[in-house]
Every structure is written in structure tokens, then in C-alpha cells.
């Protein structure tokens, strides 16, 4: 009985010390998120809140129901938000300091999108071309089902 109480006490002390140490570090500074040129498919505030839900909902539509002309494709995200080195080489969006990594590191969210998806865009024309569906300029169409759910929803933000 005494042994158990001892273990508990030690655990509590460790936890408390950890909390004190953490508060002394001060708040983690807001990350500087690289900006992409032009406008996103939705207002930034909406995107911040809903991009994960959008991607999740749309991925099902794309893979299973062939809704390939939606604007919420991860390939589009990558195409716009990729940064380039001085020599013009694209840097993967999930590399440290890049668009996806910056935020997800800050909020401590692990994503495995790029275990399968390409983290840099490629020019399909170099591979025999695959038409407009991969290009960012493709005609955007928001599925009716998603319109109400994601465009007006965003609590307190995104117009």
C-alpha cells in the first residue's frame, strides 16, 4: 500500500514539474506560414477550419465516384503551395518549414497524406499528358452536397 502511494506521489511530482517547465518555456511562437500566390479555393479562415474535412469528403468522391473535377483536390493544394529552391527545384510541401509541415508541427498533428500522395507537382505533359483534370486552371465545380456544408458553415469565420 505504501509502495503504491509512493509511486503515485512520484508520478504527480514529475507531472507537476513538467507543467511548470512547460509554462516557463512560454507560448510556442506562431509559425510563419509560407504564402502562395493568388487566391485559395476558399477564404483562408474557412480553409484553416475545414480543409481536413474537405479533403476527407472529397477523396471518397474522387476515388470511388470519380468526382475528379472538384476543386478540392490535394494535387491542387500541392500545385499552389509548393515553394521552390533558388535553382527552381520544388521543395516538398511536407518538408520542415514548408506549407503543410509548418502548421501541422505547430498544432502537433501527424498527417500521412504524403506517404502516398506526391508532395511536389509534376508537369503531366512530360509523361504523355493526362488532360485538364490535373491542372489547377481546370474548371472548378463544387459538388452540391458539399456547398452548404462547407461554404456557409465555418463558425465565426470565413464570411
Amino acid at each position: 500500500m505504501h509502495a503504491r502511494a509512493g509511486v503515485l506521489a512520484v508520478l504527480l511530482v514529475v507531472l507537476a514539474l513538467g507543467a511548470v517547465w512547460a509554462t516557463h518555456q512560454g507560448p510556442v511562437p506562431m509559425p510563419v506560414i509560407p504564402r502562395a500566390p493568388g487566391h485559395c479555393v476558399l477564404p483562408t479562415a474557412s480553409m484553416r477550419r475545414t480543409h481536413m474535412m474537405l479533403l476527407r469528403a472529397v477523396r471518397e468522391e474522387i476515388v470511388r465516384h470519380d468526382a475528379r473535377d472538384t476543386r478540392f483536390r490535394i494535387t491542387h493544394c500541392v500545385a499552389c503551395h509548393v515553394e521552390h529552391t533558388a535553382s527552381g527545384q520544388p521543395i516538398p510541401v511536407n518538408a520542415p518549414g514548408q506549407f503543410c509541415a509548418t502548421c501541422h508541427t505547430y498544432v502537433g498533428v501527424h498527417i500521412d497524406c504524403f506517404a502516398c500522395h506526391a508532395a511536389v507537382p509534376r508537369n503531366p505533359m512530360k509523361f504523355g499528358g493526362i488532360g485538364g483534370s490535373n491542372s489547377v486552371q481546370a474548371a472548378f465545380r463544387i459538388p452540391q452536397a458539399l456547398r452548404g456544408r462547407f461554404l456557409s458553415g465555418g463558425a465565426g469565420g470565413g464570411r
Binding site: 494535387t75 500541392v78 500545385a79 500521412d112 506517404a115 502516398c116 500522395h117 506526391a118 508532395a119 507537382p121 509534376r122 503531366p124 509523361f127 493526362i130 490535373n134
Partner: peptide, 14 residues
């Protein structure tokens, strides 16, 4: 681990 995927052909470990 796959790193050099084509955007139009996602494929990954596991």
C-alpha cells in the same frame, strides 16, 4: 517508403 510519386498515381508504403 515511396517518395517520388506521380501526382496522378498516388502509391505508398504499407
Amino acid at each position: 517508403v515511396v517518395t517520388d510519386q506521380r501526382p496522378w498515381a498516388p502509391r505508398g508504403k504499407g
